[in-house]
């Protein structure tokens, strides 16, 4: 690129630009370099997305990373012991564009998780913000943890 002459055809300039990109990407994805940055995100939009589950005294919290998923393309269903999340993620790349690298995918996904305690399906709350789905699942009353004060005899 640095020694491009004035008469270099535009197509050649474009090609070398493309090669620069390719070489760079190859470097970044070589095993030695890649190990510096874990590649877990290649898993995030698989057909069965990874999920984390958190818990406090009153609620369970289900979380999944769903970058690029619009709320209208997402379905959440719950019963007292089970949660089901499904949807699709589509890519928005113009038809006339030439793809140089493709690490993301169009995917139809579904994830079902059996819940460790009974929840109240009518009271759950689901938020999708910044590509992160967070579902708050209130525990049924008997399942909630209550701190009991111990009296001195």
């Amino acid at each position: 690129m640095n020694t491009r002459t004035i008469l270099t055809p535009a197509t050649t300039a474009m090609d070398s630009l493309r090669h620069e990109f390719d070489r760079l990407f190859d470097r970044v994805t070589t095993p030695g370099l890649a190990s510096a940055w874990p590649t877990r995100l290649f898993d995030s939009m698989r057909p069965h997305p990874a999920a984390n589950l958190l818990e406090d005294d009153d609620n369970l919290y289900f979380e999944a990373e769903l970058p690029g998923v619009a709320p209208e393309n997402l379905d959440v269903n719950a019963s007292d012991h089970s949660l089901n999340v499904s949807g699709t993620r589509t890519l928005d790349i113009p038809d006339e564009a030439t793809t140089l690298r493709r690490e993301r995918s169009t995917v139809t996904f579904e994830r079902t998780m059996r819940l460790p305690v009974a929840i109240e399906p009518d009271a759950i709350d689901a938020r999708l913000e910044g590509g992160i789905l967070t579902i708050t699942l209130p525990k049924v009353r008997p399942a909630r943890t209550r701190r009991i004060a111990v009296r001195e005899a």
Binding site: R18, F21, F25, V28, A34, W37, P38, T39, R40, L41, F42, S44, M45, P67, G68, L91, I93, P94, E96, A97, T98, T99, L100, R101, R102, E103, R104, G131
Partner: peptide
């Protein structure tokens, strides 16, 4: 973490899309 990317090219631009 290393974010997955798509890269595409049009006549006048390159675009990098990262999750």
């Amino acid at each position: 973490y290393r974010a997955p990317v798509d890269v595409y090219e049009t006549d006048s631009t390159f675009t990098v899309i990262a999750d």
